[in-house]
Design a protein around this nucleic acid. Sequence first.
DNA 1: CATCCAGTATATA
DNA 2: TATATACTGGATG
Length: 181
Amino acid sequence: MSKQFVELPISAADGQFVARYSAKGLAELEFPPSNGRRRGDKSQISSLAKSVRDSSRRLLQVPDEIHNWHRATETALEEILAGRAPKNLPPLDLSGGTEFQQAVWRELRKISRGKTKSYGEIAQAIGKDRAVRAVGGACGANPVPVLVPCHRVLAAHGKIGGFGGGLDWKRKLLAREGVKF
DNA sequence: CATCCAGTATATA
DNA sequence: TATATACTGGATG
């Protein structure tokens, strides 16, 4: 009874992302699998290859609309990974979040390339200045990282803060858009 | 209800 | 600089 998503891979320069689409738009974006652990375990690779084959098969039967959305996702993702501002984004389906989370995510989308805000500033912007820690939780629950730029939220006084996809990603994304911290 | 957290200001050394 | 602590509100089980 879980929600049905169309799942499609994105081969980017930094690895293979996975995008999932609802009927409303891009609902999830997943970072490439981390490559550090379990040397000699090929199951991860082969399951990835299987995912690519399955997705390629699906590609032939997904609606044109989703196919178009996916092309927009691919382009936007590559732009951001290159440190540029994407011209177009696919429609986003962020309906899976609570009202609070959606308010935070809406605020994240206002932070333009190369800029940052603190968790406290986000909390203040949505009118809940003491919910600072909860803002961190909502950032961590962001289902569409990179395109919804939770990496542009730093802790107070320029400290790096956390990142669900791993701090290496956060530092990489910020560095590519010229942010110092 | 209890527990967990991608936080922050303050105090102290 | 670093560590400790109190306080905080939302999500989760």
